[in-house]
């Protein structure tokens, strides 16, 4: 197994890097996109609210793989050429943003409605009240689960393997089918994933216990 690791070290490390990069980018963008759609879900305008709702429900109920393959195979055919890594990261972003939108919306709803009304009464617009009063409080609910969201992202980023996204799983598949040492290759791949996910997961458990 050590020989397997050392002789394919570059591939494993580059896969590890792409996995990490894709997850970090997707987390960052899905936070932005997710918050936007969460706000859409609570604005007074009914039309915007429906759009927000549709976005969240659609992308929460379709497999990530379908979304990713759509971006990899269909978008380049008609819109713009994107490679597997980009398609995978966009897929991850859209998928995750629908879940983040739900968390942010719950956060917004948890802020007392009186605060919004008071702010409006003071002459603030809806957006100002949202920006300065409601969102900062809502994000208190959003930030802690982000760690878990990141763990999910790292795990889900394995769909990049389906679209030649150069990630850890893609490299693992390539190495396994060249060395024929399938099980050991996947054990190494698993350890690489755990290096990222396990510490975050334990830290989150620790945080939850502290807060409880």
């Amino acid at each position: 197994m050590i020989h397997l690791l050392t002789s394919n070290w570059n591939e494993f490390i580059s896969g590890f890097g792409w996995t990490l990069l894709s997850s970090v980018l997707a987390l960052f963008f899905s936070l932005i996109v997710g918050s936007l759609f969460a706000i859409l879900e609570v604005v007074p305008n009914k039309f915007l609210r429906i759009i927000g709702n549709i976005y969240v429900e659609v992308f929460r109920n379709i497999p990530l793989l379908v979304i990713t393959m759509f971006f990899y195979l269909v978008i380049p055919l008609y819109v713009v050429k994107i490679n597997g890594f980009t398609a995978g990261t966009i897929g991850l972003t859209i998928y995750t943003s629908a879940f983040i939108a739900e968390t942010v919306r719950a956060g917004i709803n948890s802020v007392d409605i009186g605060q919004m009304e008071a702010a409006r009464g003071q002459g603030m617009t809806f957006w100002q009240a949202m920006r300065y009063i409601v969102l900062p409080q809502a994000f208190k609910y959003v930030i802690p689960p982000l760690g878990n969201q990141f763990v999910n992202l790292v795990k889900n980023s394995s769909v990049l393997a389906f679209v030649a996204g150069f990630d850890l799983m893609y490299q693992g598949n390539a190495i396994a089918s060249q060395t024929f040492d399938t099980v050991n290759t996947y054990i190494i791949v698993g350890v690489f994933y755990l290096i990222i996910t396990l510490p975050i997961s334990y830290y989150m458990q620790h945080l939850e216990r502290k807060l409880a």
Binding site: S157, V159, Y186, G190, Y193, Y202
Partner: peptide, 22 residues
Amino acid sequence: IDVIRNLPLLLIIFFVYFGLPA
């Protein structure tokens, strides 16, 4: 529980399909 939860499902599928037969 913690180890398995923190692995991609895809990897678990590979382990079951390619690894268990051993």
